[in-house]
Design a protein around this nucleic acid. Structure first.
Length: 551
RNA sequence: GCGGACGUAGCUCAGCGGAUAGAGCAUCAGACUUCGGAUCUGAGGGUCGGGGGUUCGAAUCCCUUCGUCCGCGCCA
């Protein structure tokens, strides 16, 4: 990409200055960083090398900057260089150099977002993992959108990525038993039998609908069955529904990993044995405890209750062991902020089993506050007060919903104004971005009708400031992919998409593309349009939104 | 009380060590009888919650204080 090529040129310039004795040996230690001047009139790129180096080199920044600038002027990619401010070196690139990058972008197509990695990692992203006792609702949407896009970005950045949904289907689970009892009560109610709805049970409308569905599938003969039947039957239906909603949301998992399978295979018991052998499990008050305090947790955690039943932690321990044993180099768990307190104990368990805790990362998505009619709208499965994700997809569409979640940093609290999302959906930035795509499609069609086509031979006709800015912006995509992958900051891609669209609209206003009287310039501009089109598509792909040709 | 996240334009949010702090929405004023006006141009609007520090330089890092939110189960 342009930035890496230019950085290499800067490094070479520093190296040559050092070899010529104009800079001390310590110069090699200083990183060369590329930034952009505040105003494009000052140059295409800038470096603060001289200022960073000042501390190491014992040389005034402007002096170093001047030396560097002189050397850079000899570079065949560089048009001009100026030293500015406290010691910035501003660089203007040659038109011909940028034109070559326009051609490369057009040739690369959507693969412009793909990066090569020297040592690709095998990464497992576990996300959503909603309990099978209710539909996917708006509260889950953020983790779904974030986790999925993170997986797409990591793949694009060169890693091998698995996506996994952990299904809490354990028969030990108190929550699931309570849910099963709630369904059972509704089922009996449907049959006109006596029923006892559990205290604190699941009261949402969907629970009644679920009971009716079970009745339809399995008949009326289960009134006497225990909660096992109802848990198993409801789980199956809930998971099917979750899977369908998520697929519609553009989220597909490689594996749906069953918690109960860990118990059935004996992996949970085996993991507990290992912990005992490693002396990180001990008995007290008739229960079995994980000595997680040995790894920095606040308190030890119960693995097996005094009544002999296992806690969710027991299966969690076996689960993370299982992930590592499947050969993953890195585990990324996407959790909501309400699970923040579980990081320490999970990492402790991993280390107690002898696995590397630093290979376990948790990305926390902050709580979303939903507003409706100007009031906070609760999102609670227990009471059924919630808005299903499917409902929002019905009303505003998948693209708007996904983009909305992805626009904000996963790490910041956000307000989701449901009314605003519905009423002003046309003003959502996603349309701005998609419009750029549709506009190019229609333009290319028109050009074809006029007998004009792109041609790399004339790329050097791209000299207008808007054309130059667009080429640079296009080549920022791989750069943003790299940064987003490294920092797990997925929302940068939405910002990028808006910026790329803006740059295109700007170009479109200022540079007439189809002009038969200037066929060479037209073909150069068409090439740039094609490069923008595929780059937009690459970005949309990462965000999981569609690329409409007409709107 | 302890731990964590967050306080940036009227609203929703970017920026997270660099040169005059940005965008969208909202408000106001404009654009070639249009290669799609779902676009573009401009204006107003800010003690970056408050206070200390670190350094050539802080919205960004550290400390402190106030405010909001989330955790702190032999629930998942």
């Amino acid at each position: 990409m342009i930035r890496t090529d230019l950085t290499r040129r800067l490094q070479e310039a520093v190296e040559r200055l050092r070899a010529a004795g104009k800079l001390p040996a310590a110069a090699a230690e200083c990183p060369v960083e590329l930034s952009e001047p505040p105003n494009p009139e000052r140059g295409d790129y800038a470096t603060n090398f001289a200022m960073v180096a000042a501390g190491h080199l014992d040389k005034p920044p402007r002096e170093t900057a001047t030396l560097l600038a002189e050397r850079l002027r000899e570079d065949d990619a560089i048009e001009s260089v100026e030293v500015a401010g406290p010691g910035f070196v501003n660089i203007r690139l040659k038109n011909a150099y940028l034109a070559r990058w326009a051609v490369k972008a057009q040739q690369a197509g959507e693969s412009i977002a793909k990066l090569e990695k020297d040592r690709p990692e095998k990464v497992l992203v576990e996300f959503v993992s909603v309990n099978p006792n209710g539909p996917i609702h708006l509260g889950h949407g953020r983790g779904a959108a974030y986790g999925d896009t993170l997986a797409r970005i990591l793949e694009s950045a060169g890693d091998e990525v698995g996506r996994e949904f952990y299904v809490n289907d354990g028969v030990n689970s108190q929550q699931m038993q309570l849910f099963a009892l709630s369904v059972q009560a509704k089922y009996r109610e449907l049959l006109g039998l006596e029923f006892e709805f559990p205290e604190e049970g699941y009261g949402g409308d969907y629970v009644g609908a679920l009971a009716a569905q079970i009745r339809e599938l399995h008949g009326d003969s289960h009134a006497g069955d225990g909660p096992e039947f109802f848990q198993s039957a409801s789980q199956k239906l809930m998971i099917e529904g979750q899977r369908a909603d998520l697929e519609r949301f553009g989220v597909r998992f490689d594996t749906w990993f069953s918690e109960q399978a860990l118990h059935d295979s004996g992996e949970v018991n085996a993991a507990i044995e290992t912990l005992k052998q490693n002396r990180y499990a001990y008995e007290e008050d008739g229960a079995l405890w994980l000595k997680s305090t040995a790894f920095g947790d606040d308190k030890d955690r119960c693995i097996v209750r005094s009544n002999g039943r296992m806690t969710y932690i027991a299966s969690d321990i076996a689960y993370h062991k299982n992930k590592f044993d499947r050969g993953f180099d890195r585990l990324i768990n996407v959790w909501g902020a309400d699970h923040h307190g579980y990081i320490a104990r999970t990492r402790a368990a991993i280390e107690a089993l002898g696995y590397p805790g630093d290979r376990f990362d948790v990305a926390i998505t902050q709580i979303v506050r939903f507003l409706r009619d100007g009031k906070v709208a609760p999102m609670a499965k227990r009471t059924g007060e919630m808005i299903p994700l499917a409902e929002l997809m019905d009303e505003v569409g998948v693209d708007v919903t996904r983009f909305f979640y992805l626009m904000r940093s996963h790490d910041s609290h956000m307000d989701f104004d449901i009314d605003l999302a519905k009423e002003h959906s046309e003003k959502n930035p996603v349309f701005y971005v998609q419009y750029a795509h549709a506009r190019i499609c229609s333009l290319l069609k028109k050009a074809e009708e006029a007998g004009l086509a792109s041609d790399p031979e004339h790329a050097e006709r791209l000299v207008h400031p808007s054309e130059r800015a667009l080429i640079k912006k296009i080549w920022d995509l791989p750069f943003e992919v790299r940064r987003s992958a490294d920092d797990r900051e997925v929302h940068r891609l939405t910002t990028y998409a808006v910026e790329l669209a803006r740059q295109y609209h700007d170009f479109y206003e200022k540079c007439r593309v189809i002009s038969p009287e200037e066929p060479e310039r037209s073909s150069a501009r068409l090439l740039l349009c094609e490069a923008t089109l595929t780059t937009l598509r690459a970005a949309f792909n990462l965000l999981g939104i569609s690329a409409p040709e007409r709107m």
